[in-house]
């Protein structure tokens, strides 16, 4: 049986980020490449935050899903280059984050310093107000910061720009 690259990409949509279970590894932008030779598959992924404990889980999830397609050999490789940035998060994933009260990261076109200077410009995922304040650049997971919305008086989490 011969697999196609397209089939593998489609199957990877089923593998979710365990910390944001409605967002797939593809939408998150961590899949760098898919190569297929006959029914042997190589997938290259890259971490969001290097210390993210979800990475080994996603790696295993990818291997398992690709094996289920009928691949005889699956190699999931981790590569740091090109570097992941939060700009790689797909619009579909950004919309889903909003629905669970998680503000998506502002796009920064590789100018992270500028965005960090302007951290208050984060919209509340509940009421869309920009009257928000960064309470803590660290949150319940490595990729989240804690904000407070003055308009609706709600604390909320933000997926950090990187």
């Amino acid at each position: 049986m011969n697999l196609t690259v397209g089939q593998v990409w489609e199957a990877l949509e089923d593998v979710k980020d365990p910390e944001i279970p409605m967002v797939s590894v593809v939408e998150l932008g961590i899949v760098q490449a898919v190569e297929v030779e006959g029914d042997a598959v190589r997938v290259v992924i890259t971490p969001t935050f290097t210390g993210c404990p979800a990475l080994p889980m996603m790696r295993e999830g990818i291997a398992e899903r690709v094996r289920a397609l009928g691949a005889s050999a699956v190699d999931v490789e981790v590569c740091l280059s090109p570097r992941w940035t939060s700009d790689r998060i797909a619009p579909s994933a950004r919309a889903k984050m909003q629905t669970i009260g998680l503000a998506p990261p502002p796009r920064h076109a590789d100018r992270l310093d500028l965005v960090l200077e302007l951290t208050p410009l984060v919209r509340c995922p509940y009421c869309a107000s920009s009257d928000t304040v960064l309470e803590n650049p660290f949150g319940p997971t490595l990729c989240r910061a804690m904000y407070y919305c003055h308009a609706c008086q709600q604390p909320f989490e933000q997926f950090k720009a990187l």
Partner: peptide
């Protein structure tokens, strides 16, 4: 609490960097 979380996250980051 915020600093408990901050130092714990920083620790997790640094361990990730060490592993790298």
């Amino acid at each position: 609490l915020e600093e408990d979380i901050a130092f714990s996250s920083i620790a997790q980051d640094e361990l990730g960097h060490a592993l790298t």
